[in-house]
Amino acid sequence: MTLERAIRAVVLYPHIMDVYADRGNLIALRARCRALGVALEVANVGLGDPLPTEADLVLIGGGQDAEQRRVAPDLFERRDTLHRWVEEGAGVLAICGGYQLFGQAYRTGAGDELPGIGVFDVTTVAPPLGWERCIGDVLADSLVEGVGEVVGFENHGGRTYLGPRARPFALVRFGHGNNGDDPSEGAVYREAIGTYLHGPVLPKNPALLDRLILAALRHRYGPDESLPEVPGDEWAVRAHASAAEVARSRGRPRT
């Protein structure tokens, strides 16, 4: 009998950075791990809580301005451990406000700077007065191998610009993406993914979900790990197709 494989997920600030139903990603992760026969251990880390010594997967969601301000200094304190995990190849899914804080910095309208932890070489700036938020359905093609078409919903004021060392997570067909000027959406560094797609993104994008679980398994057990051949959830496939159709019919076409 083979021993069951297990992965350790850390959810950062689950009760603060959760504004767009980000816990849906954890719900999908639990269900898929069960289907794949992978045991999932989850550690919730709130403000001031200690980080576990190891993690194979890190999740962080979005928050309102006030919440992001609370979280930023606490996250900054933990940057060394988080960088070590990322460099070792742990999977990361950082969404919206969490993505911004995993970048270099967030420059507010007043001109002061909220420091990020710099996993992604991206900088976010508050939009000038009078600019609309980037809100709507998104359909994009991921540049991450095996992930393919991704769907979701975005709702962010900040405009994010890629630095020279950053690669986008996807290119939008419909939606604003990072800034509404160029077609880039999110960022990737090693196995870390930052994105504005909430939605939540994992339930409706089963290929992305599998990609993160695979990264977590490889981080834990080595680069030869693979996922068992378990067909994707039919419910997820249908929800993906329906969300893609919605984005095609009413999403903002790529500029």
């Binding site: 719900i27 959830d233 249908r238 329906s242």
Partner: peptide, 19 residues
């Protein structure tokens, strides 16, 4: 958005007999 809802309910332990 029946398909989105059916997926959410499925993940919550409720499978629709019809969508």
């Amino acid at each position: 958005r029946a398909s989105d809802l059916a997926l959410r309910l499925h993940l919550g332990g409720l499978d629709a007999s019809s969508t």
